[in-house]
């Protein structure tokens, strides 16, 4: 039986992971799981710990553990996330592991993440393309496509996934990612997916609340978006992504964002918003240099 099917052991932990309820995954009682599901559950837990930024803990815990390629892959990802850069040793390790164990799903997912993050997009896609009916892999592929601005490819993947995975939770989420790029009515559809997750106590998480808030922001429903951000902040006051998006909202509302920015700098200095911001500032100066204004003395 497919362990991810509605009656399977892994379905709840897997859903929790994709709903962004990482703590729930970490705390999940897996003691009663059958032996073949033990490893996937463990990997899920490791991924959840990585998602809550426990990079060093995971890395040190897995150090030297070569019991299975899955675990090795997890330790590579942990090592990479600790200090992400293109020339990290982890990237090379990931490449070699991918070559050796390319058919292992977790290797695909974890090494694929490393490769995609480090910019080796084509390699990542090639690795992930080997998956056999894994929605996780599809999710990664879709995200990579979206990051490459290949909306067409991403939406094709999503449509395909919908065909074989029907209405699974992850398919809905993937469609929402795509929908947030397509816009129009899709904003509303994405909003429904996120809102459904965010407003039910059993499935609520910062990630889904954030999704809801962003969808509302894109729909132009700013007060509602603000309320959702508030809710997310209450759950987790120091979440970089929430803060970054809140800065965006406040900018739109014409509010001052300096405080929010400095606290974001404290929490997550390498957030895209800040990196981008500095980059743009220098670009501005460069562009300015082309003009030489003359001032009246």
């Amino acid at each position: 039986m497919d362990p991810y099917s509605a009656e399977g052991e892994l379905v709840n932990i897997h859903s929790a992971f994709h709903q962004g309820q990482f703590q729930k995954v970490i705390d999940f009682d897996t003691s009663s799981f059958s032996s073949e599901n033990e490893l996937p559950a463990r990997i899920l837990k490791l991924r959840a710990r990585l998602a809550v930024c426990e990079y060093s803990e995971v890395a040190s815990k897995l150090k030297g553990d070569t019991s299975s390629p899955d675990i090795i892959a997890a330790s590579i990802l942990a090592e990479y996330l600790k200090a992400p850069s293109e020339d990290s040793k982890a990237v090379a390790k990931a490449q070699s592991l991918a070559a050796k164990e390319g058919d292992n799903l977790n290797v695909q997912l974890l090494c694929g993440s490393v490769l995609a993050h480090s910019g080796a997009v084509e390699e990542a896609l090639a690795l992930l393309a080997k998956h056999q009916g894994s929605l996780d892999a599809v999710a990664l592929i879709v995200q990579i496509h979206l990051q490459q601005n290949r909306l067409d490819l991403a939406s094709k993947e999503a449509v395909n996934a919908r065909k074989w995975a029907q209405d699974s939770l992850l398919v809905n989420i993937i469609e929402s990612w795509v929908g947030m790029r397509e816009g129009g009515d899709k904003y509303q559809a994405a909003y429904y997916v996120f809102e459904e997750l965010a407003q039910a106590t059993a499935t609520q998480s910062v990630q889904s609340l954030l999704g809801q808030a962003i969808a509302e922001l894109h729909l132009g429903r700013l007060p509602e978006a603000e309320a959702a951000f508030e809710q997310a902040l209450q759950l987790e006051p120091e979440n970089g992504d929430v803060l970054a998006n809140l800065i965006v909202l406040n900018t739109i509302l014409g509010k001052d964002t300096t405080d929010a920015k400095s606290s974001l700098e404290r929490i997550k200095a390498d957030h895209m918003l800040l990196v981008d911001f500095t980059e743009k500032r220098s670009e501005f100066d460069k562009a300015c240099d082309k003009y030489s204004p003359k001032f009246e003395a």
Binding site: R47, H117, A139, L140, Q147, I214, L217
Partner: peptide, 10 residues
């Protein structure tokens, strides 16, 4: 620009 967290790790 907004930032939508998708797959953890990316």
């Amino acid at each position: 620009r907004t930032f939508l967290p998708a797959n953890p790790g990316l």
